[in-house]
Write a protein that binds this DNA or RNA. Structure first.
Lengths: 118, 118
DNA sequence: TTAACAATTGAATATCTGTTCAAATGTTAT
DNA sequence: ATAACATTTGAACAGATATTCAATTGTTAA
């Protein structure tokens, strides 16, 4: 058998390439997207915004009151949530009503809760 | 009709309390756990570690080689992943082999990927 | 058109997070 | 014992992140 180049005492170059070829590990760009997406669930204000929006649409001022935060702080977070398409909004007069973008969001929240509760 | 105390032009105190009573928004402690949990998926190194572990257990040195990172950096991240029970490990000689803690992890990764791909 | 209000924006600051580096721990073989 | 190796740990530094504050945009009503 031919000599194999060792990377660590256990992993051989062939194995490493095999693992990478299997393609179950997203490439750099996709990992970046994925982590940016999950980052949205990793801040208490954002997680609470998403949780509150499960019950229907709310405007920025409502969210600020519910979170006990300033409208500015909430708006900054909503901007991030918009950037990864987790929320959508519609204008009604002076106000912007925000809502969850789709059902995925709730599923994900529930899965997270399931994990930490068990 | 009785006068209601307004919080914002739209949300009334009764509504706010109703929303909070519905209990679909986790309390402070649970939100903290939840965000700490999701935070684990929000760093590229950690996300790649979890992705690589889908294909079977790997030791720290292997992961370091696959990630092109130092064993120290990997170990620090593994410590965080252990802290929220996303990975488990077993010792074999000098090495520690890490594995995903349960199926939840893969489900979550897939849901995240599903969201960003659509 | 002006005033009032809801929300957004950008810059500054304080905090959090991830990596590095050196030292320590645990295991195996000599 | 000692040496060699895999991994962990803690402290220090650099970069990322969330909030605040002041200024701005957009909408409605007088």
């Amino acid at each position: 058998m031919e000599k194999m180049e060792r990377i660590t005492p256990y992993l051989f170059l062939e194995e490493k390439e095999a693992i990478e070829r299997q393609g179950r590990v997203p490439d750099e760009g996709e990992i970046r997207h994925l982590t940016d997406f999950f980052k949205m669930f990793s801040d208490p204000h954002r997680a609470r915004i998403l949780s509150f929006l499960r019950q229907g649409e709310l405007c920025v001022g409502d969210l600020a009151a519910l979170l006990d935060a300033t409208p500015s702080a909430v708006s900054h977070q909503l901007k991030l949530l918009r950037s990864v398409h987790l929320v959508r909004y519609r204008r009604e007069g002076k106000m912007l009503f925000y809502a969850l973008a789709d059902g995925h969001v709730e599923e994900l929240l529930d899965q997270g809760l399931e994990h930490i509760r068990e």
